[in-house]
């Protein structure tokens, strides 16, 4: 892929989907995220970059309240999705997570058949009225996950039997099947080989048309390739946030520049 392409990419101005204000995250005594403000646009790929342990994954996990499952984790501040505070006491994290899907670093298909993996979300949320609808939904999701052609003849085979890249696309299809509005991706390609990575990146670019996609990545090249907006995290702070082209070519903060040129990180 040609990195120069980012310069030509037109950046649409979209509605704000996620708005975070003054977010602090503590792991026990450890202050992991310090006062982060960010607005994430709809129908845009936003990349979180930064060195290991900078808090980018932690912040991502705040957006669908996955941090709730960790006992010692405490989140302060506001995160609004479509204007609704997701840390409001009335919000059910279960409903939130149906709206904000997530793809993890390591492909984690359930030890079930491919079909059941994808149908799991629709079943628990009651998205299909009957078997035919469910079949249709599964097929549509697998197509969106760009894996339909590879698995359509063995939907009953266990999902764990697929290759790493296929497993990750299955997980994306599984996330898409619940019809979320936001898709969070936590280093989705770090466990994959370059070919599989290219397939996933292409897929992300297409998903942008329907969702707000937030991707955490270790690789600056990947961020440059797939995202329209980029946020740079360092030691728990959001250092710089802006259009991807601008961050990579003309960063404002010296820390961002040091990271991009490889002097820190």
């Amino acid at each position: 892929m040609n990195d120069m392409r980012i310069l030509e990419r037109d950046v649409d101005t979209n509605d704000v989907k996620i708005a975070a204000k003054g977010v602090q995250v503590y792991y026990g005594d450890n202050h992991a995220i310090k006062d982060v403000d960010v607005e994430i646009d709809d129908k845009t790929v936003t990349a979180f970059i930064g060195p290991s342990g900078c808090g980018k994954s932690t912040f991502l996990r705040c957006i669908n309240r996955m941090n709730d499952t960790i006992d010692v984790c405490r989140v302060v501040g506001d995160i609004h999705i479509d204007g609704e505070d997701i840390y409001d006491a009335k919000v059910d994290p279960v409903q939130l997570r149906a709206k904000v899907g997530m793809v993890f670093q390591k492909p984690n298909p359930f030890p079930k058949s491919i079909y059941d993996n994808v149908a799991y979300g629709p079943r628990i949320h009651g998205l299909a009225k009957n078997k035919a609808e469910l079949d249709e939904l599964v097929e549509k999701s697998l197509r969106r996950g760009a894996i339909w052609d590879e698995v359509k003849d063995r939907l009953d085979a266990p999902g764990t039997g697929l290759s790493g890249g296929q497993q990750q696309r299955l997980c994306i299809a599984r996330a898409v099947a619940t019809e979320p509005e936001v898709l969070l991706m936590d280093e989705p390609c770090s466990a994959l080989d370059p070919i599989a990575t290219a397939q996933i990146e292409e897929l992300i670019d297409e998903l942008r048309q329907s969702y707000s996609v937030v991707i955490v990545t270790h690789s600056m090249q990947q961020a440059a390739r797939v995202s329209q907006k980029t946020a740079f995290f360092h030691l728990g702070n959001l250092v710089e946030y802006g259009e991807t082209g601008q961050i990579f070519t003309n960063p404002v903060d010296p820390r961002t520049e040091s990271y991009i040129t490889g002097r820190i990180g």
Partner: peptide
């Protein structure tokens, strides 16, 4: 995590 991420209780 995979299951919670899909909004399962």
């Amino acid at each position: 995590d995979g299951s919670y991420g899909l909004g399962a209780t």
